[in-house]
Amino acid sequence: MLELKNLSFTVDGAGRDTEIIRDVSLTVPDGEFLVVTGPNGGGKSTLARLIMGIEQPTAGQILLNGRDITALSVTERARLGVGYAFQQPPRFKGMTVRRLLSLAHGSPLPEDVCCEYLTNVGLCSREYLNREVDGSLSGGEMKRIEIATLMARDLEIAIFDEPEAGIDLWSFSVLVKTFKNLSKRKHKSVIIISHQERIMQLADHLAVIADGAVADYGTKEEIFPRLMNDLNDSCGFREG
C-alpha cells in the first residue's frame, strides 16, 4: 500500500517560489489499479517522480506498506519495490534490449522469457533482443521497452507515465491486455498516468490532477461522467 500525505513540491524559479505539487494526499491500497489523468503541466509526472524519489518533496510524507520512505534514495526505494516507467525514457549507447531487461529483472534473463516480455508490449520479440536501446529505436519502441522493464519486475507499486504515447492502435490493445493481466500478477498496486479512455476503463479509481492538486477522485463510474462534462465545458478542463 502506498500513502501520500500532504505532499508538496515547490521550486524556486526566477526568484519566485512556484508550487508544482500542492498538498496532495492519496492512498493506493494493495491490488488497486489507479489511473491518474488531468491536463498537461498539471503535475502528474512530478508526482510520479516524487514517489520514485527522483525529486524530494518540500513537505509531506510518502509511506510504503506503512513505512516512511520520504528520506530514502531512488535506489533504496527501487529495492523496496517501487518502479517507474518514464514518460521520456533515456537511450543508452551500447546497451542491448536484453541486457536492459536483465538489469531490470536483477539477474540475466533467458531468451524466451525476454521474448515473452517483449511480445506482451507488442514488440515482435527476437529481432529486438540484441538491438541497442539507442537512437536507432523509435519513440514508440523506446516506450514499449520501458514498459517491458517494469513487467520484468515484481513490484509493490508500478507507475507507468503515459504508456500509450507514440504507440500504434494494434500494439495499444496488446498493451491494455498486458496491464489488465500481467501487471495485476506482477505488481501489487499499479498507477497509470494516462489520457486514454480504454486505460481508464481498467481503473478501480481515477484521480484527476490539475494545477498540482487532486481536482477529483473516485471510482471510474463516479469520475467518468464528470470528466466528460468537463471536457465538453469550455470553461473547465483546459490544457494548462
Partner: peptide
C-alpha cells in the same frame, strides 16, 4: 536515474553505462 530506479547504486549505474 533510470538505472537507479532499477535498484542500482549510482556508482554501479555509472559503471554499467561506461561498459555499454
Amino acid at each position: 536515474t533510470k538505472l537507479c530506479t532499477l535498484g542500482m547504486t549510482p556508482e554501479d549505474a555509472e559503471q554499467v553505462i561506461i561498459e555499454g
